[in-house]
């Protein structure tokens, strides 16, 4: 990763959900860092803990979930704050949310409040953090709507979410997230719910914003194709842990972990299309309630060895800046 001081640093984060059916270890020891103005792609199947990690960074873990261990360090000019230790409803975390760290979500259809005008929702986000007048906030909101490529921003300002298309709503969400010029933008599968053509447009928009606003991005997706076009660095998550982490080129050219390779195999390319075949990974993600023994991926891994079922590999460097949690790439212990 970049040499600069990281903007955000997550250390050994564990988020558990205490439910009637037992304890779900949604995030089970995750470390990563994001440098200013860099984009980190977080990849994994649904249920791997990537969204929970993102929420933890926002301080948005709600009961029955709880951060049981670890640190989430946000670096400011003079001090470092540990988000995981802040009261999730307190004043300090609210000053960070939407201001220093903003977030956009998967479902633009449901993420905007249906009973308020688009513009007013953006104005609210601005006024929560900046001491400026209402009129000035309105002007800024209109400018933001224009900046995210919404035509006729003044008219759109007065409209309700149901009057906008899915793509337009996601643009409005992005405008709202960018309204206070955050240093980190967390995008949780922002294109998954959109049509393919709209997806591409939103991706272009985010790339443009990254340049214009100098924002670091934590980009969460289950789609490696999307990552290739966005990220500087990539972490691959499986069962609440990071199984591989590397710069984007490295991970696409030299994937180490069998899970990463499996994900690569599931990208539909033209060649695959011709053969009408997708190499999906066998099996399903095990229940997060299950007690972990050995490598979590072993039951689905085509290369699983004896040791994989008994011992946990742990994340270790396999090349400079490239780490993987797999015994295949280790000298015999």
């Amino acid at each position: 990763m970049g040499a600069a001081e990281p903007l955000i640093e997550v250390k050994d984060l564990k988020v558990h959900f205490h439910t009637e059916d037992g304890v779900a270890r949604a995030v089970d020891g995750v470390d990563f860092a994001i440098a200013p103005e860099r984009t980190l792609g977080v990849v994994g199947e649904s249920g791997c803990g990537k969204s929970v990690t993102a929420r933890a960074v926002m301080g948005l873990i709600d009961a029955p979930g709880r951060i049981v261990q670890g640190e989430i360090l946000l670096r400011r000019q003079s001090q470092v704050v540990d988000i995981s230790k802040l009261d999730p409803r307190g004043r300090e975390i609210r000053g960070i949310r939407g201001n220093e760290i903003a977030m956009i979500f998967q479902e633009p259809m449901t993420s905007l409040n249906p009973v308020f005008k688009i513009g007013d929702q953006i104005v609210e986000a601005i006024l929560l953090h900046d001491r400026i007048g209402r009129r000035e906030a309105r002007e800024r909101a209109v400018d933001l709507l224009a900046a995210v490529g919404i035509p006729l921003p003044r008219q759109r300002f007065e409209q309700f979410p149901h009057q906008l298309s899915g793509g337009m709503r996601q643009r409005a969400m992005i405008a709202m997230a960018m309204s206070c010029n955050p240093r980190l933008l967390i995008a949780d599968e922002p294109t998954t719910a959109l049509d393919v053509t709209i997806q591409a447009q939103v991706m272009d928009l985010m790339n443009a914003l990254r340049r214009d606003f100098n924002t670091a991005i934590m980009f969460i997706t289950h789609d490696l194709g999307v990552i290739a076009g966005m990220a500087d660095d990539v972490v691959v998550m499986y069962l609440g842990r990071i199984v591989e982490s590397a710069p984007v080129r490295e991970i696409f050219h030299h994937p180490k972990h069998p899970y990463t390779r499996g994900l690569m195999g599931s990208i539909p390319s033209l060649a695959d299309w011709g053969a009408r075949r997708l190499t999906a990974i066998e099996g399903v993600v095990p229940s997060p309630f299950a007690e972990r023994q050995g490598c979590g991926f072993a039951p689905r891994c085509p290369h699983a060895m004896e040791i994989c079922r008994t011992r946990d590999p742990g994340l270790e460097d396999v090349a400079p800046g490239h780490a993987a949690a797999c015994f295949l790439h280790r000298a015999a212990p």
């Binding site: 926002m58 948005l60 609210r94 000053g95 960070i96 949310r97 939407g98 201001n99 903003a102 977030m103 979500f105 479902e107 449901t110 993420s111 905007l112 409040n113 249906p114 609210e124 986000a125 929560l128 953090h129 969400m173 709202m176």
Partner: peptide, 11 residues
């Protein structure tokens, strides 16, 4: 979802 959005704004 829009409640999470509101919280994410810092409301």
């Amino acid at each position: 979802d829009y409640i999470t959005t509101a919280r994410a704004k810092g409301a």
